[in-house]
Design a protein around this nucleic acid. Structure first.
Lengths: 230, 230
DNA sequence: GCAAAAGTGTTAGGTGTACACCCATGA
DNA sequence: TCATGGGTGTACACCTAACACTTTTGC
């Protein structure tokens, strides 16, 4: 039974917009699709979905990410909420934006076609509908700030990855070259990587050792209040 | 005319919760009130209000801040959005939290009584309704991070203030003492303060020079991409 | 044997941090 | 004259950023 005071209030459509990011061959990719309904049907849009009464915000995001990628349990983070009166050309919609970092190797290609979705190179994303370009820019600011302090980048890599891959990821996030000796030193100091026996020979003859991210050690560091900076 | 696709979606009550902060005599204060309706009538709550169709989010925040303080044009910043299914005991409400920094000297006392609102010392705020303690904690994290890089603290001070006042503010935000020589050095390097002729003699016999915040110089620095850190 | 990427240490400069004394004034 | 808070400079530790060569191996 809804209390009286609430019933006097106005109600709104609430959506989530998902900035789904992946990383492959030294480049960051954004998942976008052609909008499937009017207004602006056919234009490029971020992935999104409407909030339902039986879902929390993060459950809606999980549902949307799962629908389009087939992946569960992704790393996600709230970016912000966009509520200008006319931001959505169709109706008043308050939208909460989240970014999600996923391992592109786990991605289900068939869902891509089903939804008219595609991975677009992040640096060359063109015009998106509504305020989605603004949302994307806000996301990148947050991601850059966040990635400088916490090793969230691991969420964009497969379970086993090489140091040069990790470095290329950070170079893609910051759009700037990084000195590899300094980078390795920093990463080693953190002591959250586990060197594997085998090497990745796909990008060089010599091959680069694989590493795994050690979540336990990472959590321990966080407990101690340790704070990284790259 | 609402497009068909939207009409099939569910709608929600949307509110804003405002963390209204002030600073006085070396201490930070939070504006809270007794809730005026059920459920949980009479319990301590953050200031809030429901979103209306003719308002953007920030307009709702401005309205709420104005209703309770009589102040317009406050510095505000979005904290995040809280959307768990049962976070509000009365109904499903999605709430967007903003913090606002105000100059307590401009505050209208009469509105306080009218709304059963009061300034509560931030360090001693007790239990608040719903997830408001969580929201408050998230706010303080954001405020501390933000204040380290940008001189947003000026929004909590009157137009004319002294360096010891400014330092006390930062000590209150970080809950830690700061070396005054180092603090002055940092502030001077920024070169965004204008020394006044007159002194504040209220807290010492010698008196401390007043300063004003120079917004033009500050904006210039931001343009250049300059980045502070305290 | 050579091209191409992986891997490895050192140094100089700058930044943050700790620290102690004199000054101005009202009571 | 003394108690109180305002105001000032320096030295050391640490961190950041710049820099070049050797190793491995498939072709």
């Amino acid at each position: 039974m809804t209390p009286l005071f609430y019933r006097e209030q106005e109600q709104f459509y609430v959506s989530v917009d998902c900035i789904i990011l992946g990383f492959k061959a030294g480049k960051l990719y954004l998942l976008i699709s052609k909008r499937k309904f009017d207004p602006l049907m056919g234009y490029d849009t971020l992935m999104g979905g409407f909030l339902r009464h039986d879902e929390s915000l993060s459950e809606t995001v999980s549902r949307v990410v799962w629908e389009y990628t087939g992946i569960e349990d992704v790393y996600m983070e709230q970016v912000g909420t966009y509520g200008d009166i006319s931001r959505d050309a169709g109706e008043r919609v308050v939208s909460i934006a989240y970014y999600a970092l996923i391992d592109m190797e786990l991605f289900d290609e068939t869902l891509c076609k089903k939804h008219n979705a595609r991975w677009h190179e992040l640096e060359q994303v063109g015009e998106l509908i509504f305020d989605h370009n603004l949302i994307l820019n806000d996301t990148l600011s947050i991601l850059r700030r966040k990635a400088a302090n916490l090793p969230i980048g691991f969420n964009l890599l497969p379970e086993k990855f090489t140091i040069p891959q990790l470095q290329a990821l950070y170079e893609a996030i910051y759009q700037t070259p990084i000195d590899k000796r300094n980078f390795r030193k920093k990463i080693n100091e953190m002591d959250i990587l586990e060197k594997q026996e085998d090497k990745d020979k796909s990008s060089s003859k010599r091959g680069a050792f694989y590493y795994k991210f050690n979540k336990e050690k990472y959590d321990q560091l966080l407990q101690k209040g340790y704070y990284f900076s790259l």
